[in-house]
Simulated assay, not measured.
Amino acid sequence: MLKHGLDPAERRAPGRVEASDLATRQGAQAQFLQVAAPKLDQLFGLVGHSGCAVLLTDAEGVVLDQRCAQGDAAIFQDWGLWQGADWSEASEGTNGIGTCLAEDRRVIIHRDEHFLARNTAMSCMDAPIYGADGRIIGALDVSSARSDQTEAFNRLIAAMVAQTARQIEADNFRAAHPRARILYADHDETEAAMLLAVDADDIVVGATRAARKAFNLGAIGPIRPIPASDIFGRDEGPSGFERAERAAVIRALARTSGNVSEAARALGIGRATLYRRMKRLGIGENLH
Protein backbone atom coordinates (compact mmCIF):
# COMPACT_ATOMS: atom_id res chain seq x y z
CA MET A 1 0.00 0.00 0.00
CA LEU A 2 1.95 2.95 -1.36
CA LYS A 3 -0.17 5.49 0.52
CA HIS A 4 1.11 4.26 3.87
CA GLY A 5 4.52 2.98 2.74
CA LEU A 6 3.78 -0.61 3.75
CA ASP A 7 5.47 -3.72 2.37
CA PRO A 8 3.05 -6.67 2.05
CA ALA A 9 5.87 -9.12 2.80
CA GLU A 10 7.02 -7.55 6.06
CA ARG A 11 6.79 -9.81 9.09
CA ARG A 12 6.90 -7.32 11.94
CA ALA A 13 4.60 -7.82 14.90
CA PRO A 14 1.33 -5.87 14.87
CA GLY A 15 1.67 -2.35 16.23
CA ARG A 16 0.49 -1.70 19.77
CA VAL A 17 -0.10 1.50 21.67
CA GLU A 18 1.52 2.07 25.04
CA ALA A 19 -0.35 0.82 28.11
CA SER A 20 -0.88 4.39 29.30
CA ASP A 21 -2.31 5.37 25.90
CA LEU A 22 -4.67 2.38 25.97
CA ALA A 23 -5.85 3.28 29.47
CA THR A 24 -6.53 6.85 28.33
CA ARG A 25 -8.51 5.63 25.34
CA GLN A 26 -10.53 3.20 27.45
CA GLY A 27 -11.22 5.91 30.03
CA ALA A 28 -12.46 8.30 27.37
CA GLN A 29 -14.84 5.60 26.10
CA ALA A 30 -15.86 4.21 29.50
CA GLN A 31 -19.60 4.55 28.94
CA PHE A 32 -19.36 3.11 25.44
CA LEU A 33 -17.41 0.12 26.73
CA GLN A 34 -19.85 -0.45 29.58
CA VAL A 35 -22.82 -0.35 27.23
CA ALA A 36 -21.13 -2.62 24.68
CA ALA A 37 -19.86 -5.28 27.08
CA PRO A 38 -23.08 -7.36 27.34
CA LYS A 39 -23.45 -7.32 23.55
CA LEU A 40 -19.85 -8.49 23.11
CA ASP A 41 -20.57 -11.34 25.52
CA GLN A 42 -23.72 -12.24 23.61
CA LEU A 43 -21.99 -12.19 20.23
CA PHE A 44 -19.07 -14.23 21.54
CA GLY A 45 -21.54 -16.76 22.88
CA LEU A 46 -22.74 -17.25 19.30
CA VAL A 47 -19.40 -17.36 17.47
CA GLY A 48 -16.79 -18.24 20.08
CA HIS A 49 -17.30 -21.98 19.76
CA SER A 50 -16.13 -21.79 16.15
CA GLY A 51 -12.72 -20.38 17.09
CA CYS A 52 -13.55 -16.72 16.57
CA ALA A 53 -12.50 -13.68 18.56
CA VAL A 54 -14.74 -10.65 19.09
CA LEU A 55 -13.08 -7.22 19.20
CA LEU A 56 -14.27 -3.67 19.80
CA THR A 57 -12.11 -0.75 18.68
CA ASP A 58 -12.13 3.01 18.90
CA ALA A 59 -12.51 5.26 15.86
CA GLU A 60 -8.77 5.03 15.16
CA GLY A 61 -8.72 1.23 15.00
CA VAL A 62 -7.12 0.58 18.40
CA VAL A 63 -8.62 -2.47 20.12
CA LEU A 64 -10.26 -1.45 23.40
CA ASP A 65 -11.86 -4.76 24.39
CA GLN A 66 -12.00 -8.33 23.14
CA ARG A 67 -13.46 -11.76 23.78
CA CYS A 68 -11.86 -15.09 22.92
CA ALA A 69 -11.69 -18.60 24.30
CA GLN A 70 -9.08 -19.05 27.01
CA GLY A 71 -7.39 -21.77 25.03
CA ASP A 72 -6.99 -19.44 22.03
CA ALA A 73 -5.82 -16.38 23.97
CA ALA A 74 -2.09 -16.77 23.33
CA ILE A 75 -2.64 -17.26 19.60
CA PHE A 76 -4.93 -14.24 19.23
CA GLN A 77 -2.55 -12.11 21.28
CA ASP A 78 0.33 -13.09 18.98
CA TRP A 79 -1.76 -12.15 15.96
CA GLY A 80 -2.49 -8.74 17.46
CA LEU A 81 -6.16 -9.48 18.06
CA TRP A 82 -5.92 -8.05 21.55
CA GLN A 83 -6.37 -4.87 23.56
CA GLY A 84 -3.98 -2.12 22.51
CA ALA A 85 -3.33 -3.43 18.99
CA ASP A 86 -3.49 -0.84 16.21
CA TRP A 87 -5.48 -2.15 13.24
CA SER A 88 -5.77 1.11 11.33
CA GLU A 89 -5.13 0.94 7.57
CA ALA A 90 -2.06 3.12 8.13
CA SER A 91 -0.61 0.43 10.37
CA GLU A 92 -1.85 -2.81 8.78
CA GLY A 93 -3.05 -1.96 5.28
CA THR A 94 -6.30 -3.52 4.09
CA ASN A 95 -7.89 -5.38 7.00
CA GLY A 96 -11.34 -5.74 8.49
CA ILE A 97 -11.11 -3.10 11.20
CA GLY A 98 -9.04 -0.51 9.36
CA THR A 99 -10.94 -0.76 6.08
CA CYS A 100 -14.31 -0.67 7.85
CA LEU A 101 -13.30 2.59 9.55
CA ALA A 102 -11.58 4.11 6.51
CA GLU A 103 -14.50 3.38 4.17
CA ASP A 104 -17.25 3.87 6.77
CA ARG A 105 -19.08 0.66 5.86
CA ARG A 106 -19.54 -3.01 6.70
CA VAL A 107 -16.77 -5.21 5.28
CA ILE A 108 -15.67 -8.82 5.03
CA ILE A 109 -11.94 -9.26 4.44
CA HIS A 110 -11.38 -12.93 3.71
CA ARG A 111 -7.89 -14.38 4.05
CA ASP A 112 -5.70 -13.22 1.11
CA GLU A 113 -7.75 -10.04 0.70
CA HIS A 114 -5.64 -8.70 3.56
CA PHE A 115 -2.72 -6.50 2.47
CA LEU A 116 0.00 -7.89 4.73
CA ALA A 117 0.96 -11.48 4.00
CA ARG A 118 1.13 -12.35 7.69
CA ASN A 119 -2.61 -11.55 8.02
CA THR A 120 -3.80 -13.68 5.10
CA ALA A 121 -4.73 -16.64 7.32
CA MET A 122 -7.50 -14.52 8.88
CA SER A 123 -11.09 -13.82 7.98
CA CYS A 124 -12.47 -10.59 9.46
CA MET A 125 -16.08 -9.38 9.55
CA ASP A 126 -16.64 -5.78 10.64
CA ALA A 127 -19.31 -3.13 11.06
CA PRO A 128 -18.93 0.52 12.08
CA ILE A 129 -20.63 1.90 15.18
CA TYR A 130 -21.79 5.53 15.37
CA GLY A 131 -21.92 7.68 18.48
CA ALA A 132 -24.81 9.80 19.67
CA ASP A 133 -23.32 12.79 17.83
CA GLY A 134 -23.40 10.99 14.48
CA ARG A 135 -19.63 10.47 14.30
CA ILE A 136 -18.13 7.03 13.94
CA ILE A 137 -17.11 5.85 17.40
CA GLY A 138 -15.51 2.50 16.63
CA ALA A 139 -15.75 -0.82 14.86
CA LEU A 140 -17.07 -4.21 15.91
CA ASP A 141 -14.99 -7.11 14.58
CA VAL A 142 -15.17 -10.88 14.52
CA SER A 143 -11.93 -12.50 13.38
CA SER A 144 -11.05 -16.11 12.72
CA ALA A 145 -7.98 -17.93 11.40
CA ARG A 146 -9.65 -21.27 10.77
CA SER A 147 -8.45 -22.63 7.44
CA ASP A 148 -11.82 -24.28 6.78
CA GLN A 149 -13.88 -21.13 7.30
CA THR A 150 -15.91 -20.51 4.17
CA GLU A 151 -17.05 -17.25 2.64
CA ALA A 152 -20.67 -18.34 3.16
CA PHE A 153 -20.01 -18.75 6.88
CA ASN A 154 -18.31 -15.36 6.89
CA ARG A 155 -21.47 -13.78 5.49
CA LEU A 156 -23.53 -15.37 8.25
CA ILE A 157 -21.17 -14.01 10.90
CA ALA A 158 -21.12 -10.61 9.19
CA ALA A 159 -24.91 -10.39 9.57
CA MET A 160 -24.58 -11.07 13.31
CA VAL A 161 -21.83 -8.46 13.59
CA ALA A 162 -23.97 -5.84 11.85
CA GLN A 163 -26.96 -6.59 14.05
CA THR A 164 -24.87 -6.38 17.21
CA ALA A 165 -23.29 -3.12 16.08
CA ARG A 166 -26.78 -1.63 15.63
CA GLN A 167 -27.77 -2.81 19.11
CA ILE A 168 -24.67 -1.26 20.66
CA GLU A 169 -25.30 1.99 18.80
CA ALA A 170 -28.91 2.11 20.01
CA ASP A 171 -27.99 1.31 23.63
CA ASN A 172 -25.20 3.88 23.57
CA PHE A 173 -27.62 6.50 22.23
CA ARG A 174 -30.08 5.77 25.04
CA ALA A 175 -27.27 6.06 27.59
CA ALA A 176 -26.27 9.43 26.13
CA HIS A 177 -29.84 10.73 26.65
CA PRO A 178 -30.87 9.22 29.99
CA ARG A 179 -33.59 11.81 30.72
CA ALA A 180 -35.10 11.92 27.26
CA ARG A 181 -37.97 9.98 25.76
CA ILE A 182 -36.57 7.75 23.02
CA LEU A 183 -38.66 7.23 19.91
CA TYR A 184 -37.78 4.69 17.26
CA ALA A 185 -39.10 3.44 13.95
CA ASP A 186 -38.52 0.60 11.56
CA HIS A 187 -37.56 1.71 8.08
CA ASP A 188 -37.73 -0.43 4.98
CA GLU A 189 -34.69 1.20 3.38
CA THR A 190 -32.15 0.98 6.18
CA GLU A 191 -30.94 -1.48 8.77
CA ALA A 192 -29.45 1.28 10.92
CA ALA A 193 -30.78 2.28 14.32
CA MET A 194 -33.24 5.13 13.74
CA LEU A 195 -33.84 6.83 17.09
CA LEU A 196 -34.80 10.31 18.28
CA ALA A 197 -34.38 11.72 21.80
CA VAL A 198 -37.20 14.05 22.88
CA ASP A 199 -37.10 16.11 26.09
CA ALA A 200 -39.90 16.97 28.53
CA ASP A 201 -40.82 19.99 26.41
CA ASP A 202 -41.30 17.78 23.35
CA ILE A 203 -38.14 19.15 21.73
CA VAL A 204 -35.94 16.79 19.74
CA VAL A 205 -32.51 17.03 21.36
CA GLY A 206 -30.74 14.07 19.80
CA ALA A 207 -30.84 11.72 16.83
CA THR A 208 -28.90 8.72 15.64
CA ARG A 209 -27.01 8.88 12.37
CA ALA A 210 -29.85 7.23 10.44
CA ALA A 211 -32.46 9.56 11.94
CA ARG A 212 -30.26 12.58 11.18
CA LYS A 213 -30.20 11.55 7.54
CA ALA A 214 -33.90 10.74 7.37
CA PHE A 215 -35.00 14.04 8.90
CA ASN A 216 -32.19 16.28 7.62
CA LEU A 217 -30.93 17.13 11.11
CA GLY A 218 -27.24 17.48 10.22
CA ALA A 219 -24.73 14.67 9.82
CA ILE A 220 -22.64 15.19 12.96
CA GLY A 221 -22.44 17.24 16.12
CA PRO A 222 -25.23 18.80 18.19
CA ILE A 223 -28.52 19.08 16.36
CA ARG A 224 -30.57 22.25 16.19
CA PRO A 225 -33.42 21.86 18.72
CA ILE A 226 -36.65 21.30 16.85
CA PRO A 227 -40.21 20.67 18.11
CA ALA A 228 -41.11 17.02 17.80
CA SER A 229 -44.38 18.01 16.14
CA ASP A 230 -42.41 19.53 13.26
CA ILE A 231 -40.95 16.09 12.57
CA PHE A 232 -43.91 13.93 13.46
CA GLY A 233 -46.38 16.05 11.51
CA ARG A 234 -49.13 15.62 14.09
CA ASP A 235 -51.23 18.37 12.52
CA GLU A 236 -51.34 16.31 9.34
CA GLY A 237 -51.96 12.94 10.90
CA PRO A 238 -49.51 10.36 12.21
CA SER A 239 -46.09 10.22 10.57
CA GLY A 240 -43.93 7.15 10.15
CA PHE A 241 -42.35 7.72 13.55
CA GLU A 242 -45.69 8.24 15.28
CA ARG A 243 -47.12 5.12 13.64
CA ALA A 244 -44.06 3.16 14.72
CA GLU A 245 -44.35 4.47 18.28
CA ARG A 246 -48.01 3.46 18.37
CA ALA A 247 -47.15 0.02 17.02
CA ALA A 248 -44.42 -0.41 19.64
CA VAL A 249 -46.84 0.43 22.46
CA ILE A 250 -49.52 -1.89 21.08
CA ARG A 251 -46.96 -4.73 20.76
CA ALA A 252 -45.83 -4.22 24.35
CA LEU A 253 -49.43 -4.26 25.59
CA ALA A 254 -50.20 -7.37 23.54
CA ARG A 255 -47.21 -9.21 24.96
CA THR A 256 -48.34 -8.42 28.51
CA SER A 257 -52.02 -9.19 27.85
CA GLY A 258 -52.90 -5.53 28.35
CA ASN A 259 -51.05 -5.07 31.65
CA VAL A 260 -49.90 -1.45 31.46
CA SER A 261 -47.43 -1.73 34.33
CA GLU A 262 -45.65 -4.69 32.74
CA ALA A 263 -45.74 -3.06 29.30
CA ALA A 264 -44.19 0.12 30.72
CA ARG A 265 -41.38 -1.90 32.28
CA ALA A 266 -40.76 -3.68 28.98
CA LEU A 267 -40.55 -0.32 27.19
CA GLY A 268 -38.25 1.13 29.85
CA ILE A 269 -40.63 3.94 30.85
CA GLY A 270 -42.87 4.78 33.78
CA ARG A 271 -46.50 3.66 34.02
CA ALA A 272 -47.77 7.26 34.05
CA THR A 273 -45.65 8.07 31.01
CA LEU A 274 -47.10 5.12 29.14
CA TYR A 275 -50.66 6.21 30.00
CA ARG A 276 -49.90 9.69 28.65
CA ARG A 277 -48.43 8.20 25.51
CA MET A 278 -51.44 5.90 25.05
CA LYS A 279 -53.78 8.86 25.35
CA ARG A 280 -51.80 10.89 22.84
CA LEU A 281 -51.66 7.97 20.41
CA GLY A 282 -55.36 7.15 20.74
CA ILE A 283 -54.85 3.74 22.28
CA GLY A 284 -57.78 2.38 24.36
CA GLU A 285 -57.70 2.96 28.09
CA ASN A 286 -59.76 -0.05 29.17
CA LEU A 287 -56.58 -1.72 30.33
CA HIS A 288 -55.10 -2.44 33.72
Rank of each mutant, 00 (worst) to 15 (best):
G5N: 15
L55S: 13
T150R: 11
M160E: 13
V142M: 05
R106Y: 03
F153N: 01
T57Q: 00
G218E: 06
D230E: 15
R111L: 01
E169Y: 05
V205F: 14
L195K: 09
A214K: 11
G131I: 05
A200H: 13
P238C: 07
L101P: 06
G282H: 04
G138F: 04
Q31A: 13
G221Q: 06
S20H: 06
R11S: 15
G93V: 01
W79T: 00
P14S: 05
E92V: 04
G258D: 08
D78L: 05
F241N: 06
A170L: 04
G258S: 10
E89V: 14
R246A: 14
R224G: 06
E113L: 09
D41A: 13
I182F: 11
R146E: 13
M125K: 01
C124T: 10
A36F: 12
A252N: 12
V260I: 15
Q83G: 04
I250R: 14
G258A: 11
P227L: 10
R280M: 01
L46Y: 07
L253F: 15
A139D: 11
E60N: 12
R16V: 07
H4P: 01
S239Q: 08
A210N: 05
L56Q: 01
W79E: 03
M278N: 02
E18V: 04
S20C: 02
D58K: 03
P238G: 07
G84M: 00
R105Y: 01
A176N: 04
A193S: 14
E191P: 00
S147T: 12
L116D: 03
A121D: 08
E236K: 15
Q66K: 09
K39H: 15
H4S: 13
H114W: 02
R135H: 15
F232M: 15
P128F: 04
H187Y: 13
L101I: 11
Q83D: 06
T208D: 06
C124L: 02
T273V: 12
D235I: 14
Q26E: 08
A162N: 00
L287F: 14
N286S: 07
S257W: 14
T99N: 08
G270P: 01
P222T: 07
P128A: 07
R265W: 10
G221T: 03
D141P: 07
A73H: 08
A158D: 12
A272P: 01
A266M: 14
T94Y: 05
G96L: 09
P38K: 10
T99M: 07
D199I: 13
L253I: 12
G270T: 10
A37T: 10
F241Y: 15
A193Q: 07
P222R: 08
E113P: 00
S257Y: 15
V35I: 13
A219P: 05
S20N: 09
A36C: 10
R25D: 03
G206Y: 14
E89D: 01
D78G: 09
T24V: 12
D199N: 15
D58S: 01
T120I: 02
D58H: 01
A180M: 13
S147P: 02
R212G: 03
D141Y: 03
D133G: 09
A19P: 04
